[in-house]
Nucleic acid binder design. Structure first.
Length: 573
RNA sequence: GCGCUCGUGGCUCAGCCCGGAUAGAGCGUUGGCCUCCGGAGCCAAAGGUCACAGGUUCGAAUCCUGUCGAGCGCGCCA
């Protein structure tokens, strides 16, 4: 509807030989009609004319249209458009005809988008901090798909770095404890209970196959932190020693740890309703020498130099604040190096746009990756990084820590089991992503009925109930005679329904799924209010059918919207 | 110190990108509503100098500058 009106305005302006972007807005007050346009005031300065005079001449040129009932010039020069009832009845017709397709458009023009999100290191289970990225990414992917993008969801699995070695060593040490050895667990090891579980599996399947003497393992290893040493050197020493002693078997331990945790993550995400087209392993890049090749390319283009034994990328040549190391003095690639290779790989796969969803603590990292893309000859504009603020977790007034290393965290699984998938997903995206989120577990658990998600779902369930009643009475209905919809409640619902495509479009373009949650709440509210005031299943068949048409349309929109944000639309609650 | 993000009723937040007509919700508080399609509901009331100070503008919660306050980032960590 909005687009339709914009076309009419464009035609009017063409006749006046003015070119200007037209901005139409829904009015807050229906006294001002359905849409308002402030174009006359925008043009006033440019044309040196009074806004109201400009408005008058535009209105004169506005083509006649079945959907426009009345056009008024108001206030300082607003052009207010009043739509005909036909315009709103057409919306109902469209919704009931197009069903789940309603609200879709071709704005994205079938461009391909790779959207990468969560990508948590497989060193432990997903915790509630990751949940927000998961919920946001999945909802955004759905939105982009709805407006006509070809969406490819991807999880980048960091399975090749030092962190993974630390994980493997942690598992191995716990395994040795299960072999009745007594060890000092390293300060920098992973301490969570899940490490024990993996170790136990290892012990069950391989018995004492990986058992080595403790004295042999810890001989000449730099002291740990608690003994006055450096915990990093200590763990690095242990990694080296593990590889020496276990030889080929190291891979078995490593793989067991990785596979178990990854399976766990996949399972959690699946249960959370988040699915990916691809799980892209970092080892894919390292094993095929892609990281080295990328570095070679940067070197060949003279974008690197050596200093203090390390290889640096001249990021500052491309606008970053300082140069960045890509190969450490010990010969290892930095995380940044494989990230450059990964983004190069993404672009080589031919995607038109890349979207990364990162925790806000990575914001300093954004220019770094972009400069690398520029240096490699790509257009950095193709990459959009969306930052999601971390959720601060509270249990009542107590602020909880979330550290994978120390093993102190609430897992995504626990959250899902305690507050439910629908409530959790809704809770995560109802706030703007770059807004800090206070997630109070007590509140989410104890007052789940007050979560707005139930309010919306209840509206849907209520409608389903009405439909059931009708069937139970052995009746059916036909979609016609919408002219009977005259009350204020019905009018308000018609307007809400007509707004849906506008909300979808805006939410998708702005990457703001929370817009949709607010809309759905308002729609549900309008419905509850209508339902409370007017009976739907009245004896007058024509009025009943008109109200059922409206109701069915509301049901459809609730379902469409909830599906996009990953929340179910239950028939009963 | 530099950079990024944020400051809107008691609490949690929309609105800001793209300035516009009385600043909106939810929770909480107070008072009403079930002989009637599901009360996880409805109706109503109280409650806000939009952090502060300047500036731009016919017009600023919205744009600009500064101040104060909060969070995060500034590693050969990932």
């Amino acid at each position: 509807m909005k687009q339709h009106l914009q076309k009419l305005f464009t035609q009017a302006l063409e006749q006046l030989q003015i070119s200007q972007d037209i901005r139409l807005e829904r009015t807050r007050d229906n006294q001002h009609g359905d849409f308002a346009c402030n174009i006359a005031m925008v043009l006033a300065k440019k044309l040196h004319k009074k806004p109201r005079d400009i408005a008058t001449s535009i209105v004169e040129k506005l083509p006649k249209d079945d959907f426009i009932a009345k056009v008024e010039i108001a206030g300082p020069g607003f052009i207010n458009i009043f739509l005909t009832k036909q315009a709103y009845y057409a919306t109902i017709d469209d919704i009931l005809r197009l069903k789940t397709e309603y609200g879709k458009n071709q704005l994205g023009n079938n461009q391909s988008v790779l959207i990468e999100f969560v990508s948590a290191n497989p060193t432990g289970p997903l915790h509630v901090g990751h949940g927000r990225g998961a919920a946001y990414g999945a909802a955004l992917a759905n939105l982009l798909q709805t407006v006509g993008f070809k969406v490819h969801k991807e999880y980048y699995v960091n399975d090749a770095g030092r962190q993974m070695d630390i994980l493997a060593v942690s598992v191995w040490l716990r395994y040795l404890e299960l072999c009745d050895e007594t060890i000092e667990f390293p300060a920098n090891g992973y301490q969570g209970d899940y490490i024990w579980d993996i170790a136990a599996d290892l012990h069950r399947n391989h018995a004492a196959m990986f058992h080595k003497k403790i004295t042999e393992i810890f001989a000449d290893i730099p002291p740990d932190e608690k003994d006055g040493g450096d915990k990093e050197l200590h763990i690095d020493g242990l990694i080296q020693r593990s590889k020496q002693l276990l030889e080929k078997d190291y891979k078995i331990v490593f793989k067991q740890a990785l596979d178990t945790i990854l399976a766990n993550i996949r399972h959690d995400l699946e249960k959370f309703g988040v699915e990916y087209e691809e799980w892209f392993p970092e080892s894919n890049l390292t094993d095929t020498n892609k990281v080295q090749q990328t570095i070679d390319q940067l070197q060949a283009a003279n974008h690197t130099y050596e200093k203090d034994g390390a290889l640096w990328f001249k990021a500052s040549d491309f606008g970053d604040e300082k140069d960045r190391v890509i190969v450490r003095d010990n010969g290892q690639f930095t995380y940044f190096a494989s990230d450059i290779a990964y983004h190069k790989n993404k672009l080589e796969r031919g995607f038109d746009q890349l979207i990364n969803i990162w925790g806000a603590d990575h914001h300093g990292y954004v220019p770094r990756v972009k400069t690398a893309m520029t240096a490699l000859g790509y257009n950095a504009e193709q990459l959009t990084v969306l930052l999601v603020q971390f959720a601060t977790l509270y249990r009542g007034k107590e602020r909880l820590q979330m550290s994978t290393r120390s093993g102190e965290f609430v897992t995504l699984r626990e959250l899902r089991e305690e507050v439910g998938r629908d409530a959790a997903r809704f809770f995560y995206i109802q706030r703007k992503s770059e807004q800090h989120l206070n997630f109070d577990l007590e509140l989410a658990k104890s007052q789940t009925n007050e979560n707005p998600v139930y309010y919306i779902q209840y509206a849907h369930a209520r409608i389903c109930s009405v439909m059931r009643q009708l069937t139970e009475q052995g009746q059916s209905w036909q979609h016609n005679k919408l002219a009977n919809l005259e009350t204020a409640h019905e009018q308000a619902l018609l307007v809400m329904l007509a707004r849906y495509p506008e909300v979808i479009e805006m939410a998708a373009i702005a990457h703001e799924p929370h817009q949709l949650t607010y809309y759905l709440r308002e729609l549900a509210q309008n419905f509850h209010s209508f339902y409370d005031t007017h009976k739907i299943l009245v004896t007058d068949n024509e009025l009943r059918d008109a109200r059922l048409s409206l109701t069915a349309a509301v049901q459809q929109i609730l379902q469409n919207g909830l599906t996009i944000i990953g929340v179910s639309a239950p028939e009963v609650m």
